[in-house]
């Protein structure tokens, strides 16, 4: 019936308020400090880290996680979670790869197919949100189901094989350079810009924060909670769909397992950036830093000769460390 009783009641407030304010600001800077420290350590241990070529490689590697993080950040700001990432990527990738010139069928719709892939992602996000809101089940399970269904759909369409993409335009998205940086980096930057505008200047973005801060109060203020939630999951799906398209561009093919590993990376990145799993705290700019931390770390490990199979393990430790350092544990007495 009632929320868990918090023991620490409203204490004499003014001192507590300002101390808390200082804490909030300091904590916000920690991920940036970690990033800088990481870069410094790696460039000392592996000098080629700071070479222009490597920085370009680094940004390319960060692009797809960055686009995904644009979607995931909004979901986590709500206090929810979205495990459908890999499934939605798969659907987006398969749709794009089958509609452009490819090695399997005769289609050649060119870049018109990209918006279709994005739209497919949005549709899956919409389904995800509708299930979560209207069947009133936790987003964890709704998105787990939708994610597996997405991989199933993608596998079903392809029968388990990969589709090589022959359309040179699609490839050029990833590799055509503009001002020295590959196209995919610019697309990711644009995605961040759009996500930031949505976060700062639209009602959807502001209400996402409000819901993460406290849903009861939002209900009293007349905010259409269900619509906001569905909207956020749709928005997230849109970004995952775009990421699926970028995967095709980067890997030159479409297949159902193309998104494998990205879920883990993106959750790590968002959390490491300082967006709280409890909702309401953090944002897109945090996630930019989070993605860079994760990418720099894996890039640095490669440069220092650590085999890639260690990656997931390091990310796992990173998640736990980041949350352990960030959570305001007084508020969450009952952890499920």
């Amino acid at each position: 019936m009632s929320a868990p009783t918090t023991v620490a009641g409203p204490a004499p407030a003014s001192a507590r308020g300002s101390r808390r304010a200082a804490g909030v600001q300091l904590r916000g800077l920690v991920p940036l400090g970690v990033l800088i420290l990481l870069c410094a350590v790696i460039s000392v241990m592996a000098p080629e880290f700071s070479s222009l070529g490597n920085l370009r490689r680094l940004l390319s590697a960060a692009a797809i996680p960055m686009v995904l993080a644009c979607g995931m950040t909004f979901v986590i700001l709500l206090g929810s979670i979205d495990l459908s990432v890999e499934g939605v990527i798969a659907v987006g990738a398969v749709i794009l790869s089958l509609l452009v010139a490819n090695g399997v069928n005769q289609n050649d719709f060119g870049l018109v197919a990209v918006p279709l892939a994005i739209l497919a992602g949005a549709a899956l996000g919409l389904v995800n949100g509708l299930i979560h809101v209207h069947l009133r089940i936790p987003s964890l399970i709704a998105s787990l189901g939708v994610g597996f269904a997405g991989i199933g759909v993608a596998t079903l369409i392809l029968g388990g094989s990969a589709v090589p993409v022959t359309d040179p335009l699609v490839q050029s998205i990833a590799f055509q350079r503009l001002l020295g940086l590959p196209g995919i980096v610019w697309i990711a930057a644009a995605a961040v810009g759009i996500a930031w505008l949505i976060q700062e200047y639209t009602r959807l973005g502001r209400w996402t924060y409000a819901l993460g801060g406290g849903e009861d109060i939002c209900r009293l203020s007349g905010i259409p909670i269900g619509r906001v939630r569905v909207g956020v999951f749709t928005l997230a799906g849109t970004f995952y769909g775009l990421a699926g398209a970028l995967c095709v561009a980067q890997f030159g093919e479409g297949q159902a397992l193309i998104g494998q590993g990205f879920l883990f990376t993106v959750i790590t990145a968002v959390v490491v950036g300082g967006t709280s799993l409890a909702g309401g705290v953090g944002g897109i700019l945090n996630s930019v830093i989070g993605v860079l931390v994760v990418t720099v770390l894996s890039n640095g490990m490669v440069l220092m000769g650590v085999p890639p199979e260690y990656q997931q393990g390091v990310q796992g430790l990173l998640i736990i460390a980041a949350i352990a350092l960030s959570l305001d544990r007084k508020r969450t007495r009952f952890v499920k």
Binding site: E309, Y310, G313, G316, I319, V335
Partner: peptide, 19 residues
């Protein structure tokens, strides 16, 4: 550490997969 189980097990799953 008061971290929800879905995150701790996701992370430990990653560590186990890497191992």
């Amino acid at each position: 550490l008061r971290i929800p189980s879905f995150i701790t097990t996701l992370a430990v799953g990653g560590i186990a997969a890497a191992a």
